[in-house]
Nucleic acid binder design. Sequence first.
DNA 1: CTTTCGGCG
DNA 2: AAGGCGCCGAAAG
Length: 800
Amino acid sequence: MDDMKKVANSSCNDGVLLRMGLNDNKAGMEGLDKEKINKIIMEATKGSKFYENELKKDQQVNQRIEKMMQLKEKITAQQLLKAQLQVDKLVMELEQNRNLSSTIVHIDMDAFYAAVEMRDNPELKEKPIAVGSMSMLVREILAEYDPNFMPMGLDEAYLNITEHLEERLNWPEDRRRFFISTESTTGIGKDGMNMSAKFNKAEVSSSPVLFEDDTSLMDDNLEQRGLSVENSVVFGTSAEEVVKEIRFRIEQKTQLTASAGIAPNTMLAKMCSDRNKPNGQYRISPERLAVLDFLKDLPIRKVPGIGKVTEKMLKALGIVTCSELYHQRALLSLLFSEVSWRNFLDISLGLGSTHLEKDGERKSMSTERTFSEINTAEDQYSLCRELCRDLAQELQKEGLKGKTVTLKLKNVNFEVKTRASTVLSSVATEEEIFTVAKDLLGSEIDSVAPHPLRIRLMGVRVSGFLTEEEKKYQQKSITSFLKSGKEIGSLRLQPEKSNQEYFTKNSQAPHRGSFFDQKRAARQLNRENISPNKSRGKQLFHDDNSSEDFVEETKKVTDLQNSNVCKIFTCPVCFEKQSSNNLEELNRHIDECLNRMCVKDTVEISKNYSSRENTPNFLPQLKNEYVDKCQKNKTDQLAGTDQSASVSDNSANSNTEKIGQIIPDKSPREQQPSNLSDIARNVCMKQCLFPKRISQDNEDDFGKTEHTEGTSSSCSFEAKEDTVLVCPVCNSEQKTTNLVSFNRHVDVCLNKGLIQELTEKEDCLTKTDNMENFNRAFSGDLSKGQQCTNPSQGAKSTAR
DNA sequence: CTTTCGGCG
DNA sequence: AAGGCGCCGAAAG
């Protein structure tokens, strides 16, 4: 880190020297006109302003890293062990759901190389290069392989060719034959010539390898077809051949080459397309080992979604490759948010979306512009209006209305500020947006007064969109409901509270952050008490960290799920022998053991455990070596052996994985859909959905985590005797006091779409999530995005 | 909810 | 060829 500072400083000095040099020039060359020099100096200062800001940003990242490292130092061996167990349980679940049956293709136009060619050969500029190339291939070529293919920007696209591959098997050869256009060879200049020459040479005449699975092309067909055969090519039926065909047709059409990746999911496909770029392709065969092998030494930076900051942070933890990412999974689960570490886990296992879901509803829309300094309020306001106008136009195209307007400003020092304001009624038109934006701008101008606000960028964003349901109900039911609420008290379960309060409170369910975050926070308080020997974990986690073991290691974790032997085992926490046929009991024992260490946690957690039913239906096989190791570790501890080194260096140990599935515990929020996916529970969930939130309102300790997580409270299906239930949607009194039927009515009343959506996704929704969605739809608060993510894929699996 | 950040093409 | 730009979603506070 010191090195970095040095580099930065010297670069700064260079900048100064440069400017001094310019001054010398100025003195020496009197003929040079003032303006030009001023301009150069301006550029230089602009550069340094920019650079200064880059340095600042870099230091902020360094601080983040420092903070993370401090957090890491405080992690105890017990915490790490527990995390390891939990993460590994998840790993097994993920493995079990691994889907290798899709064939996803990622096509990436070699635009950059085209640009280089163009630079070298200005004659080629006439060509309608990438202009609309992808949207054209939209229709003309790609759709033949996947009618639902997904263009990503102008120069790349995903295709799911699974179905095409099946159909193609029955295709006659002629349907797979394509004629080589000779037009391309007429291109003037060496490039036109080179390209077609390259193609002919490499892909047709002299490289049978490229058509390895099309035997017919090579021999007899050549003879049969006579002259035309010289100009045609037949592609085989394998995925590779399909993609070659696509790339061939793209090149014929656009004169541009494309690279492609073939893999069982989008993430891998994208990484594959990068492999043999330009003008190449790569395939990961649909086998688990092939996937893991591909990832083994792959730098995490290659993964979509991992940018330079994440790379740097992980590097600070000694993580550079994907296998290292896997090895450190336990540590990562303690250091990062749940979304992040789960994403890391998906990456390291090579999991991603196996189908091309059209991206969900957009959550915001914005427009912004960079310009040379603007410092008069007048100009700034008119610019602001202009942006609002543009944005309003775009919003209208998609029929969107939002509640939050955000103004973004970048001053001449490259410092970015955003100011947001959320209004009660939604905005969509230029005027509506501007009304909000101008106030934000105004207060920013005021804040620097009497100095002028010197900006180089301004942007306006609208977010917090209304859903369809809301648009419908906004004016009608909800408003009337809210209005009338004061008069008649629609939900009189707690007459002393206004409905406003009711909903506000409900929407504040405090479960941001991961399970680990919460538990970590709790443990932080009594860490001193519970960790008599901070370095306990060193030997427990002996880890050679070699990537060769990566494949083996993940295998071990999963192998366990198939083993159901072992009736006696040693508790990995207290090291006492336990014998039982009842796995649930064993799990409970370990849970208790683990949590005994975390004094204050214990009560809550064991309460949670005892009410959980997702016990794995298999028994772990614990190898003796593991037990030995644990016991050795124990004796070391007792002997007071000091290993003060940081635990993370050896946090991952294949042995520890062998007991991964013992712990059934997981907070419901992060609970994956068990393969049991038991209908009964889901039914119960649905029934609980509404009664629960009503009954919650009666509870004093409403805000407590256990309740919002929905772990222990029982379903009460009957409202109190004297309550009158008023449907919050249609605002009519309901005769029934049975909450189930009341809820059914509300179901009907509310837009079905939402309910249906919830039902479809209920596998991955917890009660809390359901309630959140409900509350959101109910109260009209849509500022939060959907929290449900497909459990079979990363939280952020596809780049936009 | 507001503000900042990370990442992508 | 590298980095600025416009945009989005999500983390952080």
